[in-house]
Lab assay of single mutants.
Amino acid sequence: HNLTITQGKLFFHYNPKLCLSEIHKMEEVSGTKGRQERNDIALKTNGDQASCENELLKFSYIRTSFDKILLRWEPYWPPDFRDLLGFMLFYKEAPYQNVTEFDGQDACGSNSWTVVDIDPPLRSNDPKSQNHPGWLMRGLKPWTQYAIFVKTLVTFSDERRTYGAKSDIIYVQTDATNPSVPLDPISVSNSSSQIILKWKPPSDPNGNITHYLVFWERQAEDSELFELDYCLKGLKLPSRTWSPPFESEDSQKHNQSEYEDSAGECCSCPKTDSQILKELEESSFRKTFEDYLHNVVFVPRKTSSGTGAEDPRPSRKRRSLGDVGNVTVAVPTVAAFPNTSSTSVPTSPEEHRPFEKVVNKESLVISGLRHFTGYRIELQACNQDTPEERCSVAAYVSARTMPEAKADDIVGPVTHEIFENNVVHLMWQEPKEPNGLIVLYEVSYRRYGDEELHLCVSRKHFALERGCRLRGLSPGNYSVRIRATSLAGNGSWTEPTYFYVTDYLDVPSNIA
């Protein structure tokens, strides 16, 4: 807008934040220059609390790290170098490059900038070799853009010569660093050979998330399962459950009422301010606690030095998902009996873990797994792929695949051998790939016309006998059925096997 004052003059007093240069501009645009008398524009009460600059400061050096910015700028000295009290560095987070010096300023003089007072450097006698002032900004957020400017702080001049310097606002972004852990990993099994893994992005990506790394490792069953005799009275049979499938998407929606109208769909109840505040506090606490764990609990591995020492970490090797089922080394339970199943799973520490690289999504279907087997899954978020990966501390989750139908069934015939004193040795093959492992066998036998009897055969007993022995049988026709019990439950009964026990007292003698 054009402003013209045809008559009258300007009068400025007691404006401590208004620089004289701005008042002189007002004289020019209003056409009143030359009308004012000496005392109409006070030299001592206008701009006496402001830094009124008329020179431009330029930054000469900028260096960044993930949490620091090192700045240096060209030296500046007023005509009387004693008038320079120091520099004021202003900075704040700036997602967009549209910041002005006066953003967030209120009537009390406060604003949204963080201000650092910096002492002037030592003055050199040689004007050509003056030290460049600077400042190291610490405690910054990774991968965050900051708006920065600097200006001088000078003393009051009796001659009211307006001098000083100020830089333009520059924008500097800190470097990326390792992201925080992925949030809320959930693993479920939808079949006997697959596990579905879902997660949420890290709360602090500290860069642009480029991919996720998912490692999985087959877990050995508890050692007590191999040692305890679950045929003993009072000892509860062990059981394991597989990871249940995901709930429906509708039930997972946030901010939804727990109660549904019987007449149909209901609208979600909005969260109160107290609920939102509580969630923010919980989120802040979780982030602080995660940072504490990362800094205190997890110790970084030592990389190899120039002395030739090897990095103890196993090298990563990509495998196809079809090879995942046989990740671990199978060892027989008892070496003397080769027909026992290889369900003991000690994992070799030198073995390469299978892994998958996930790009542009937060889910993965891990296939080719062994049925009813526990897996430990390790999830890392990465925001750099080359020249070397920059990934987060791992988040861990466990899951067990679903049982395989008929995996616990005894394959092959049940054979028998009759000894003296009416002892019958029953023999059968253990299931080759049971659900988890076989903890015991149930032997059901009966003599024709009598009630059915049951015998429990422990895992250890089966390994020693290759089956079991029935003792003290009365003469007669017998039928026997056997079924295995694994961590997933009972298998199917075998087809009945028949044998006849004679009275050993009636056996004919070869003595003449």
Rank of each mutant, 00 (worst) to 15 (best):
Y259F: 07
R318Q: 04
D250T: 09
L213A: 14
P475K: 08
H425I: 15
P354I: 13
L235K: 06
Y375G: 01
Y445V: 06
A399C: 10
T415R: 11
A399L: 12
P338H: 08
A335Q: 07
K357E: 12
T502Q: 06
Y230N: 12
P245K: 10
N326T: 05
L379E: 00
Y478L: 00
Y448V: 08
G374E: 15
E351F: 06
F289Y: 06
A399F: 07
P270W: 07
S243M: 13
L464S: 09
A405S: 10
R286V: 11
S248I: 12
S283E: 14
F289I: 10
F285G: 05
A484P: 12
D506K: 04
D273V: 07
D408V: 01
S486M: 00
T386V: 03
R301A: 05
D408Y: 01
G325M: 13
N477G: 10
Y230R: 10
N208F: 06
I276V: 07
N477C: 07
R353L: 13
P496Q: 03
T494V: 01
F285A: 14
S304M: 15
V331S: 13
Y478C: 00
T494Q: 02
G234L: 09
R316E: 09
L437F: 03
R313M: 02
W216N: 12
D385I: 12
E433R: 13
G234V: 11
R240M: 13
S223I: 08
S320C: 09
R390C: 12
S320R: 13
L237R: 14
I366P: 00
A394G: 15
K278P: 12
F289S: 06
S367P: 13
N339E: 12
Q256H: 10
Q256R: 06
T343Y: 11
H454S: 02
S257L: 11
L470F: 04
P300V: 04
E247G: 08
R318S: 11
S283V: 05
E290R: 11
A394M: 11
M402R: 02
P270M: 14
A381D: 00
Y498T: 05
V359Y: 11
L237Y: 03
E495C: 05
L280T: 15
S486N: 01
D250S: 11
R390S: 09
T401P: 03
L440G: 06
Y396T: 13
E265W: 13
E430H: 13
P434D: 00
I410P: 04
G306W: 09
Y441N: 01
R313D: 03
G489S: 06
G306N: 09
E442P: 01
R301M: 08
T415L: 13
S341D: 04
G489D: 03
K287L: 06
R353H: 10
R370A: 13
K236N: 11
V297A: 07
E282N: 02
D385W: 07
V324E: 03
K406F: 09
P475C: 06
T497P: 00
E224I: 04
G467E: 02
E258D: 11
G476N: 01
V327F: 07
V334H: 11
R318V: 14
S284A: 13
Y375N: 00
D385L: 08
E465L: 12
A381S: 11
N435W: 00
F285D: 07
P270E: 04
S479Q: 06
G234Q: 09
P349M: 08
A463H: 08
G489M: 09
E351R: 06
V359H: 12
C456Q: 02
N255R: 12
F499L: 11
A381F: 01
D503A: 05
V297S: 08
L280R: 12
T303H: 07
E389P: 12
L213F: 04
S248A: 10
E350L: 10
T241E: 02
Y375H: 06
P332C: 04
A220E: 15
S367K: 06
L228P: 06
H211R: 05
S398C: 14
Q380H: 14
E362P: 05
V296N: 13
E389Y: 12
P238S: 07
R466S: 13
E417F: 07
P270Y: 07
E351V: 09
F226G: 06
E247C: 08
S348L: 12
E388R: 08
L225M: 11
C456K: 02
N339T: 08
K357M: 12
K432T: 12
L437Q: 12
E249W: 08
L237W: 14
P244L: 11
L369W: 01
E279L: 15
D222N: 13
D323Q: 15
A484E: 04
K432I: 07
D323N: 11
S479Y: 03
P387I: 11
K406Y: 05
F246N: 14
R459P: 05
G306V: 11
K406D: 08
L455V: 11
T333L: 06
D385G: 10
G322H: 06
Y500I: 08
